[in-house]
Write a protein that binds this DNA or RNA. Structure first.
Lengths: 337, 337
DNA sequence: GATCTTTATGTAATGGATTACATATGATAA
DNA sequence: TTATCATATGTAATCCATTACATAAAGATC
């Protein structure tokens, strides 16, 4: 592999000039710039980034931590993130934590050694100490997207979860539903807490009673939706919910399977709302009513925010993007009971 | 950030000794090893990998190229890959090519500059020249998984696609189906060509005629399954297939939606087989009969293979893993016509 | 005891790009 | 014409870990 020395030799100048021609073209004559350019082409040079990173103490790598790559919800966010990153000359290192905090620590450790310049957190399922410890010495370049720690005022891109949940419940209430249940995500997760709050406040606003048994906890996956769906649907007829708001589309689809197993017709006997609007939600049976998040835009915003942090720009603490209720076939008028 | 010099100072030895204590502990006395260890703990040292990589000209990073992160089929493969990689001290850089060859080239360019040590290709949708060009000078550390170039004898982990397709067709034939169609993946893709071959040879073995209109090309996604499904189901009754073998689960689910739209009952009037056994296939309606690939194992094998290549071990050219037909509710006896 | 090994450690070169500082060149002003 | 300044380029130090080579100390052999 040719080095900058080879280029300097071929161009008849010093390595410093070659370096300048690349990094600060305005500091070099038109003529030398051209000579360097053709020398580079001739010897087939491309800079050794290990050396550059060592010297500049940066890596142009952004770590993106997520709880589970397999979750299709994240893929479009990632696409948005990567698009901005590549455009700005950054690389994205995806870190799948698989709910394993050891992994997360390993990724955080890339920062002080200049193997990564910043972190975007798509999960709050990491030890809080990782964030605070490091932030103590010097503010680490960290941006959260979708999820957040409510104890910490980190730059965050997110949706208004209480509002989105309230809208979903409001819609169900407008269809005449009174017994509205919810299958939540993990309840240590602030976004789930917020959605439950939105659910509860809207139920109150609609003067609807909330049976404590109607709030059940899942983990966003198909299976937990199925299992918790079985629990909800096994309730005695007079308590059984006629509508269920799920914190993810996968759980909603799991729930619909549980309904099929119990011979409960969706939407006639049970309305279902999901969350996220993943690709699948248009292809399941019945098509799923769901809360759509602007995933691509979330990714783009988060990466722009982080790059601004790296460039020491002032950044807004919170960026709240809007959601949309997408009505499809899994919701309808409440059954007459 | 403390450097190796700080450690040397704290331990009262030279940097060389510190380096050896870390890399070749057996070359150092028990006593110094301990002194170094406690010095490291004291100053909070962790090696600067940019410097190490520069010196060793390696990066301990493996690039994994895939056509589309959003495709859940890949996520479990990735999980397998990453598990092995992390265990062996390697990092995984996921490269989403999004069917865009420019991106692929950018990732290949990481190799000569020692930003990556090797590549695992989960896609054949890249310019072949990328592989051959580089391979000319010196064999680049490259392993393929799932997909392959049939022109090239690269180390590959894969399944027996013709056989898997033939088994699916055989099963449909055993149910009495005679008009069996197929929605394929992109036909420039060798795995799809092989599956079509398997389909055709099994059809021949079963003495079943193949209407050329029964082989339609999709792109593995929901939508293409839906659209091509509409085409197949719009055929006149006497030519319309009673069973369709799809090259992906997403297409199979798209197809089932097309069938619902056309009021064609699955499986009573139409049997559907998918491919991959993604999580969703158990939760769609009806549950999908599909060909399962050992995805986790494919990932593990591929990474082990690549690490063996990097360690200059002899590696087998082909590693063929077995598939399994998972019978669920989307297939049944052919309708009497 | 003298010589040869073996083992532990230190010294200094190395990898490749960047950049502070030094120098040379040409332009501008007095 | 000479002094002053701006601009272009070169020299060499720097980033940090690794490792070839040198050296010193301890042990083995006759």
């Amino acid at each position: 592999m040719p080095t900058i020395k080879d280029v300097a030799l071929a161009a008849g100048c010093s390595t410093a000039t070659v370096s300048r021609a690349l990094a600060n073209p305005e500091k070099v004559t038109e003529a030398t710039r051209k000579r360097v350019a053709s020398a580079i082409a001739k010897v087939g040079y491309s800079p050794n980034l290990a050396a550059r990173n060592l010297r500049r103490s940066e890596s142009r790598t952004i770590v993106v931590l997520l709880p589970d790559i397999a979750n299709p919800f994240f893929s479009e966010i990632i696409a948005g993130l990567e698009d901005i990153a590549h455009r700005e000359g950054y690389r994205v290192l995806l870190g799948d934590c698989e709910h394993d905090t050891g992994r997360a620590k390993a990724y955080f450790d890339l920062l002080p050694t200049n193997q990564a310049d910043g972190i975007i957190l798509l999960t709050a399922e990491i030890p809080l100490t990782l964030v605070t410890q490091q932030a103590r010495g010097s503010q680490i370049p960290l941006v959260m997207a979708c999820e957040y720690f409510d104890q910490l005022a980190l730059p965050t891109v997110r949706i208004d979860n209480p509002l989105a949940a309230a809208r979903a419940v409001e819609y169900l209430a407008s269809l005449g539903h009174q017994r509205i249940a919810s299958i939540t995500g993990p309840m240590q997760n602030p976004i789930c807490i917020d959605r439950v709050k939105g659910y509860q406040s809207e139920m109150a606003r609609q003067s609807l009673a909330v049976n404590p048994g109607w709030i059940v906890e899942g983990d966003f996956g198909f299976l937990s939706g199925y299992q918790q769906g079985q629990v909800l649907l096994a309730m005695p007829q007079e308590h059984r919910p006629t509508a269920i708001f799920c914190h993810s589309d996968e759980m909603a689809i799991g729930l619909m399977k549980a309904a099929r197993d119990a011979s409960i017709q969706v939407p006639e006997a049970l309305s279902v709302i999901g969350f996220d609007n993943i690709g699948l939600s248009e292809y399941c049976q019945p098509e799923l009513t769901t809360v759509s998040q602007p995933r691509d835009e979330i990714g783009r915003c988060a990466m722009r925010l982080l790059l601004d942090v790296l460039r020491k720009k002032q950044v807004p603490h919170q960026q709240v993007l809007s959601t949309q209720l997408i009505v499809r076939a899994s919701t309808t008028q409440a059954p007459k009971s």
